[in-house]
Structures are given as structure tokens and as C-alpha cells.
């Protein structure tokens, strides 16, 4: 089971700012381990962000997104107590969903 994300969702003016850190190796498939064997590509491919039930961001990533990815953005509206839910899916079909309450 992948580690939880660290999500922050905060009102800034009339927008909600979302910042998220994800725990993921994001292996490119180009690096080798100490025995010279290629480490296969292993990376998050899609990220979906919902504000309550409404989708506010959908991202597609390649292997070039850094290890332990970070992302931030803002959406209009949002109120204290609303829910922001983020789901990522990687190329091994592993997935992780976490939520944060807008503060």
C-alpha cells in the first residue's frame, strides 16, 4: 500500500490553494542499480483532484516529474470545511486516494 499523500488546501482570497506532496519513486526506466541492472520505469501517470464532487484538475505525468512529486494550483471558490480529494494512479496500476479539508 503506497504511503499517504500530504495535502494542504487553504482559502486564499476567493480561491482555494491546493498543495500536495506524493510519496513515489518516479523511476525513469533509464537508471541502473548498483549491480548494473536497469531499474524499470515506475511512475505516476494520472492525478485527479476533486473539490467535493467536482473535478478541478486532471494531470497526466511522464517519468520526468521528480521523485516524491510536488504540485500546487488554485481553484475559484471553495469554503472552509469543503473536501479536496486527490487520486493518483501509476503505471503499475497502483493507486492512492487521500483527502483534506479546506482550512
Amino acid at each position: 500500500m503506497p504511503d499517504p499523500m500530504k495535502i494542504r488546501a487553504n482559502l486564499v482570497g476567493d480561491s482555494t490553494e491546493v498543495k500536495v506532496l506524493m510519496s513515489h519513486e518516479m523511476d525513469t526506466g533509464l537508471a541502473k542499480d548498483s549491480s548494473g541492472k536497469i531499474i524499470p520505469a515506475w511512475f505516476i501517470q494520472t492525478v485527479t483532484v476533486l473539490h467535493n464532487d467536482k473535478r478541478v484538475l486532471y494531470a497526466q505525468w511522464g517519468t520526468a516529474v521528480s521523485k516524491n512529486p510536488f504540485m500546487s494550483f488554485r481553484f475559484k471558490g471553495g469554503a472552509k470545511g469543503d473536501k479536496v480529494t486527490i487520486t493518483w494512479v501509476d503505471n503499475h496500476n497502483e493507486t492512492r486516494t487521500d483527502s483534506a479539508i479546506v482550512g
Binding site: T28, L30, Q60, A64
Partner: peptide, 29 residues
């Protein structure tokens, strides 16, 4: 897009109406 990376496209963010057209992230070069 990173011109000299093995694959050029690093990330694509689709932003529905209501989402501000502004993002930050971190990529490998």
C-alpha cells in the same frame, strides 16, 4: 516540455473552468 530530455513531454495539466490557469511542480532535467 523539456527539449533535451529523453522524452520531451514532462507533464500535462488539464484545467476545467473555475481552476486558475497557473500551476507549479518539479521536473527532472
Amino acid at each position: 516540455l523539456v527539449a533535451k530530455n529523453p522524452n520531451m513531454l514532462a507533464a500535462l495539466f488539464e484545467l476545467p473552468p473555475g481552476t486558475e490557469p497557473s500551476i507549479t511542480t518539479r521536473v527532472k532535467m
